[in-house]
Amino acid sequence: MKTLLAAATAVLTVLTVGAPRSGPVDVRPDTYVVSTEPGVLPEGIAVTPAGTMYVTSSATGAVYRGDVRRPGLRPFLAAGVGGRTSAAGVRVDHRGRIFVAGWTTGALFVHAPDGTLLARRDAAPGAALNDLAVTGDAVYVTDSATGTLWRAALDGGRVGELVPWVRAADFPAAPVFLNGIVTDAPGRLALVAEQGEERLFRVDLAARTATEVEVTSGRMGADGLLLAGHRLYGVVNEPDGAGGWRFVVNRADLGPGLRTARVVERSHPVGVDRSPTTLARDADRLLWVDSQLFAATPTPPFTVTEVPGLR
């Protein structure tokens, strides 16, 4: 014990003497507890530039909020408000409004920064609104049930009605399960993942046309997508070689015009007990949601963790 204590004291002395004096080190947790309640099954995540984190519950529709500097989240938007009994993707716009894809409710929910419900916009009956992307003039939402990409116009503080923007028949092949979506910086192009057949589509949002992206060296038919310049990240599930599944984040380099994607790097895998879904960036690291959707027995605590082995 004395040897360990002496060694620890020496290390502390070295770190203290050699450390820069520019201010406190920003040490952030590698695991965040979304909830310790049973049956939450978290799904979507958004992290703002200021470090506020939002996480949805696919099982209840609740939305949790926290700070990336603290390990615990708290309930923010209660389950059931406005009929939101399920929730998947979540995004925050430059006004601080929180957009939530209502999954099996078939509705898009928009909340003010203080949580006030500003709008509920319904798609067609039977829709399953999964993920979304917000541009300067619209929000686009994927519908896993019907293979439709929906759009609601944004005009100042007004949120328009959801209209079918690209229908299933407009894709090169009818989507089995539309999922993740991202848009480029100008808001002219979208990349939309089709998870059922492991495809990635490029959507011209003005022309309302879709073409298939040529993906090589790996999978990009992802659940959650994240676009950073010409780098595309996606949470994908793949066979583990033993009759089960594992989950990884693949990173692809995109070609000119977002027409090609070559997978060049991947994270360390995790198993179905965690079943990660969507991801977000916080500074120089990636975070993903441990949904436990496919776990044999989902067990609290439900968490968000750092993606291992990839930045």
Rank of each mutant, 00 (worst) to 15 (best):
5 L>V: 14
9 T>H: 07
15 L>V: 15
17 V>I: 15
17 V>R: 13
19 A>D: 03
27 V>L: 15
29 P>F: 05
30 D>C: 12
31 T>K: 10
35 S>E: 04
38 P>V: 05
48 T>V: 02
53 M>D: 06
56 T>K: 06
58 S>F: 11
58 S>Y: 12
61 G>M: 05
61 G>P: 06
62 A>P: 11
62 A>G: 13
65 R>M: 06
68 V>S: 10
74 R>L: 13
83 G>D: 01
84 R>L: 12
84 R>H: 05
84 R>F: 05
86 S>Q: 09
89 G>D: 01
93 D>T: 12
96 G>N: 02
105 T>A: 13
112 A>Q: 02
114 D>N: 15
115 G>R: 13
116 T>L: 12
120 R>H: 13
121 R>Y: 14
123 A>V: 12
125 P>T: 12
133 A>H: 03
133 A>T: 07
142 T>K: 11
143 D>K: 07
145 A>S: 15
145 A>V: 09
156 G>S: 11
157 G>E: 08
157 G>Q: 06
166 V>D: 08
169 A>S: 15
177 F>P: 11
183 T>D: 08
192 V>C: 03
193 A>P: 00
194 E>C: 05
197 E>F: 15
200 L>F: 01
202 R>E: 00
206 A>C: 13
208 R>F: 04
208 R>G: 05
209 T>H: 09
215 V>W: 00
219 R>S: 15
220 M>I: 07
222 A>I: 00
230 H>I: 12
233 Y>I: 00
233 Y>C: 00
237 N>S: 06
240 D>T: 04
241 G>V: 02
243 G>Y: 04
248 V>G: 00
249 V>T: 02
250 N>K: 07
251 R>H: 01
252 A>C: 07
257 G>M: 09
258 L>Y: 13
260 T>E: 07
264 V>F: 03
264 V>T: 13
264 V>L: 09
265 E>F: 06
267 S>I: 04
273 D>W: 02
278 T>R: 02
278 T>A: 02
279 L>C: 03
279 L>D: 01
280 A>Q: 02
285 R>E: 12
287 L>D: 01
287 L>I: 01
290 D>F: 00
298 P>Q: 01
302 F>Y: 13
303 T>R: 14
305 T>R: 14
311 R>I: 11
311 R>H: 15
